[in-house]
Design a protein around this nucleic acid. Structure first.
Lengths: 250, 250
DNA sequence: CGGGATCCCAAGCGATACTG
DNA sequence: CAGTATCGCTTGGGATCCCG
């Protein structure tokens, strides 16, 4: 039986405590998937194909002990985030943004799930830019998975397509009249370029580029401005200094 | 020999890749300390008293392989973050903020280092609030460690006091004429209350409350508005086994 | 003396099998 | 479907040892 007491770091501080609570292997990926809504044990396992079942079981218990996750009352094997768990959203989104800087081509047998895609879109979402645009629905087919992202004003609502997840009460912005719909078919690596690289827009004719199923170039451009992740130097070899006017520590 | 190939999660996504790179035990604490500036091997070990030396060695090599850390050319045993590593700052600060929600009393033999304290202050820093205040220096003695935080306009500069770290070229905001100085002596747990709890300000007369060495109540109030971390969930409650019934937002 | 490498043991992880 | 039990392998922890 797992779920041992988290080995401490001997440090009194936020980072140390946070890593003690959610730093175990697989834990943040479970949180990432639960961030998209309540999930059953089998949903989590399906979204994390490589997780051993005992580890999933251990992590869920540890996350419950940490007050991050709780069981959904009625649903058998249902789990959801507590308020404390939902407060991890900035952490997960920050990790998502950073991770894209080091994301190359999809590796051997790597999957891209709907919940991961939803987090990517939320991490890339530019609320201020979106505020100036008319309501738009973006239907994305990335690799095997499909999601629908509804943007209205400065809000984003991502919903997996064709998933058997626990029905969410999340009212999809009901009364928003969506006039503009963009539907894209794109390979995972090209999706990365789409989110991170400004020039990917122009490379539309390339073999791996996005295929527009519904909508026109103007909507592709709108997507590109609404969803963007700024990456930093690949090898990080660039010169130091030149930091923006942020807090600095000596 | 350590520094094995990071075991993958089989996922193509930012969070998964990020956790593969910096999710190993101790790695983010090393990044946290390097965020305060270049450090020598012995500095890192001193700031992380419980880290085994072989693990520190392994992590530093792995972080170099990941492009997060590089050696400082001249300094023997010196390490610093690359640009990619510095891009982890939002991740570390988000973790720091979240961690304070679950931070109770200092545990058995837990230390609070100057680098950790610096990150706490940067995570709590309210730039917009500070912009409206005159330049101020805050000297904090929390437990055994002391730092000086210089706030001018919307910038924060934290400097450890009495540390033998590698001299940083970062010019401390030179020409800022600091008229107001607040010097506080406070226990770690009371420091937590100071950052997270609005009422702690009033509990000044309590035994564990902050002791004002230099400055007046107005400056304490200014500190309290300049540095703040908003916590969620069961504040100050450590690892509640039975999750209290929290509101579920749908 | 600081910066690391080596060893050994315990604990965590992963794959599979099994049960309510 | 939702986990638990078991077992071998890999990692982390702590002490020691080595090298410049």
């Amino acid at each position: 039986m797992g779920a041992r007491v988290a080995r401490g770091f001997g440090q009194y501080g936020g980072v140390a405590r946070a890593v003690e609570r959610v730093g175990e292997r697989w834990a943040l990926l479970i949180v990432r998937d639960l961030l998209a809504g309540a999930r059953r044990y089998s949903d989590l396992k399906a979204g994390l194909p490589r997780i051993p079942t005992n580890i999933l079981s251990d992590r869920l218990r540890e996350l419950q002990d940490a007050g991050v996750v709780r069981r959904v009352p009625v649903v058998r094997g249902g789990y959801e985030l507590t308020e404390l768990g939902r407060a991890l959203e900035p952490v997960v989104l920050a990790l998502e943004r950073w991770g894209w800087s080091t994301l190359g081509e999809p590796g051997d047998g790597e999957v891209l799930t709907a919940d991961a895609l939803a987090v990517s879109l939320r991490a890339a979402f530019q609320a201020e830019v979106a505020a100036a645009m008319p309501p738009t629905e973006y239907v994305l087919h990335v690799g095997e998975t499909s999601v629908s992202a509804l943007v209205a004003a400065r809000t984003l609502d991502v919903m997996p397509i064709g998933s058997g997840a626990i029905p969410q009460p999340r009212a999809r912005m009901a009364a928003a009249p969506v006039a503009d719909v963009l539907e894209l078919l794109v390979a995972p690596a090209a999706f990365r370029d789409l989110l991170t690289d400004a020039s990917a827009l122009r490379a539309n004719a390339l073999g791996d580029g996005p295929t527009v199923l519904v909508g026109g170039p103007a909507l592709v451009d709108r997507f590109h401005r609404t969803f963007r992740i700024v990456t930093v130097g690949p090898a990080g070899e660039a010169a130091a200094g030149a930091g923006a006017g942020e807090a600095s520590v000596a």
